[in-house]
Each structure stands twice: as structure tokens, then as C-alpha cells.
């Protein structure tokens, strides 16, 4: 290229630095405050001169820490349990969405049921449905319809094993929340995986078939390893929704299945907010997405731009 190398104006770097500070400033603020005691936060000696402490994190996680805390007589915030719930729900729904989505995407590409256009249209349609719209029907269905009769064989067994009264319903269980997250994410996952599966050369599969591999073997041993980047992007997006979602989880969870976002919202609406502890919890909730972003930003951008930008 005969393009003349233009010198970049230093102003551009100034803009760049400003943008970076604006983007991560608020998050850094939360990080710093999560290491401050409430006394330091409220006294308003804003700045970096304070004694950093992990007491907020200890308070937040008091119910799963192996040791007793001196500054607390009673562990009121059960964030530890909520973290376990959040982890179970996010990991299981991500894994299931990927497995189901992968199989469906493969079938759609290889056996040509309908093209990518249909998949993109479905994706867009599902993306259009706000979680708030699902709130009412999901609440009704999960509580009243998706139930096993307690006198039935399976329902009776569950009631005998786990106790409780009434019919065995999806609401209030981890599976209930997981099911709706899978449904919300599936179209996107299928759609993004399709674009990766299309690129797997047909000959490779033909060769495997010649060697006597069945469709399942071909899928697991040939196709899956080749679409790893697509799987990574799909996994991150699914995990993010399942990990961060509040509304449906709050409608479907009971006392024992609350996730972290629910506890944060509950504690924020109180009159006297314990800023330090809340920030520590917020930070803990933000850590997995932050790690994904730092290590897999390329895949995230792929997932984000796919669909709008062709090619």
C-alpha cells in the first residue's frame, strides 16, 4: 500500500485514555469501596488513603466460611448459599444449553431442515421477548401446571424423599429456573453454532463415515472439537444471562434457591444500606464476567457482532 504513514495526533491518545477511565472508573470505585469499612465510606475521606480490609467479603460470605468471625455475632446475610445456588444454576444451564444447542445446530446444518434465515428470525423473535413478559406465564405455569401429582409414583417418591406438602412443582427448584434460562438462550446458541458448523468441511465427515463411524460418533469426535471457538462464545453469553438474571429467578425461587442478584436487590431496597458489604457482594458477582471479558474478549466480540455485521 502506498498509503502515507500519518502521524497519530496525541489528542487521540487523550481520547482513548479518557474513554478507558470512563468505562472502568465506576467498576474500580466499587472495587475500592468493597475493601473499605462503612465508616471510611461514609466519612467521605474520598481518596485512596484508608486501611484496606477484607471484612466486607467475610461478612458477605459468613455462612460458608469455615471459621468464626469476630466482628459478627449473627450471620444475617446468607450470600454464601446464594453463591452456591447461582453457580449451580449458571453452570448447569450453560452446559445443558450447549449440549442441546449443539445437537440442534448440527442437525439443522447437515440435514438441511430449514436455513439459517429461519434460525436468525427465531433468534431475533426470542431476543424480542423481554423477561418481564415471561414473568406472568412462567410464574403461573411453574407453580400450577408443571407439577407432579403427590399421589403419583414419581411425585410421591420425591415428596417422601425431600419432604414438603402439596404437589411437586417446578417453581422453587433449581431445575425450574434452569429450564427457563435454557429456553431463553437456545435460539442464540443454535444460531451462533450454526455459523461455525457450516465451516466444518463435509469431506472430513464423509471420511469418518467411510471408516464406519455412526452419526453420533462423527458429531462428538469430529465436529465438536472443530467448533470450540463457537462453543466458547455461546457458553459465555449463556453463562452471563444465567448468572446475572434477576427477575425470573426472583419469581421462581423460594427461600433455599435464591440467587445472588435477588439478595443484592433485597438488601439495596432497605433503608440503611451497608455499602461496604453490598459492594463486596457486587464485586463477587462481577468477577466471573470480568474474567471472561479479560480472557475471551475476542470471542465475546464475535458473538456480539455476529448477526449485525456479516462476514
Amino acid at each position: 500500500m502506498a498509503e502515507i504513514e500519518k502521524k497519530t495526533h496525541p489528542g487521540f491518545y487523550a481520547i482513548l485514555v479518557t474513554l478507558i477511565i470512563m468505562a472502568i472508573g465506576p467498576i474500580m470505585l466499587m472495587l475500592i469501596n468493597s475493601f473499605k469499612l462503612d465508616v471510611d465510606i461514609i466519612s467521605g475521606t474520598s481518596g485512596l488513603i484508608f486501611m484496606p480490609t477484607i471484612q466486607n467479603y467475610e461478612t458477605a460470605l459468613c455462612d460458608i466460611l469455615p471459621y468464626e468471625l469476630d466482628h459478627l455475632d449473627f450471620c444475617a446475610l446468607k450470600f454464601g448459599g446464594a453463591f452456591v445456588n447461582s453457580l449451580i444454576i449458571a453452570l448447569v444451564s450453560t452446559a445443558l444449553t450447549l449440549i442441546i444447542g449443539c445437537m440442534a445446530a448440527y442437525a439443522l446444518v447437515r440435514f438441511k431442515f430449514f436455513g439459517r434465515d429461519t434460525a436468525s428470525a427465531t433468534t431475533l423473535m426470542v431476543r424480542m421477548v423481554p423477561p418481564a413478559v415471561l414473568l406472568v406465564p412462567v410464574f403461573g405455569l411453574w407453580n400450577n401446571e408443571f407439577c407432579l401429582d403427590k399421589t403419583g409414583l414419581v411425585g410421591g417418591w420425591i415428596r417422601d424423599t425431600f419432604g414438603g406438602r402439596g404437589d411437586v412443582c417446578l417453581a422453587g427448584t433449581h431445575s425450574g429456573i434452569i429450564l427457563i434460562y435454557i429456553a431463553m438462550n437456545l435460539p442464540f446458541v443454535i444460531w451462533i453454532l450454526q455459523s461455525f458448523i457450516v465451516q466444518v468441511p463435509r469431506q472430513l465427515e464423509e471420511a469418518a463415515r467411510m471408516d464406519g463411524a455412526g452419526p453420533f460418533q462423527i458429531f462428538f469426535k469430529i465436529v465438536l472439537p472443530l467448533i470450540k471457538p463457537g462453543l466458547a462464545a455461546a457458553a459465555i453469553f449463556t453463562f452471563r444471562i444465567a448468572w446475572n438474571e434477576y427477575l425470573l429467578a426472583s419469581a421462581l425461587s423460594d427461600r433455599d434457591t435464591k440467587t445472588v442478584p435477588i439478595l443484592i436487590v433485597n438488601n439495596m431496597s432497605e433503608y440503611n444500606v451497608e455499602w461496604g458489604v453490598i459492594m463486596a457482594t457486587g464485586m463477587l458477582l462481577a468477577i466471573p464476567p470480568i474474567l471472561f471479558t479479560l480472557f475471551a474478549s475476542r470471542q465475546i466480540i464475535t458473538g456480539m457482532t455476529a448477526g449485525a455485521v456479516k462476514g
Binding site: 497519530t8 487521540f12 491518545y13 482513548l16 474513554l19 478507558i20 468505562a23 472502568i24 465506576p26 467498576i27 470505585l29 466499587m30 469501596n33 452471563r240 448468572w243 446475572n244 434477576y246 442478584p261 443484592i264 436487590v265 439495596m268 455499602w275 453490598i278 459492594m279 457486587g282 458477582l285 462481577a286 464476567p289 470480568i290 471472561f292 471479558t293 479479560l294 474478549s297 465475546i300 466480540i301 456480539m304
Partner: peptide
């Protein structure tokens, strides 16, 4: 344009979208 630090900007720019909306609300409320 080809700026050094552009990929860093893009990476850090994604952060606000990736963290939980609940946490975003919390930060801004503070």
C-alpha cells in the same frame, strides 16, 4: 485508525455490558 491500545479499549469497553445489571444499578446508585 491503527491506534495502539485499541484492543485494550475494546476489551475494557465490554465490561459494563458483561457485569450484572443489578451490579450496574448498585454502582450508579452509589
Amino acid at each position: 485508525r491503527n491506534l495502539r491500545g485499541m484492543s485494550l479499549l475494546r476489551t475494557l469497553f465490554i465490561l459494563p455490558m458483561m457485569i450484572a445489571p443489578v451490579v450496574v444499578g448498585l454502582i450508579w446508585k452509589y
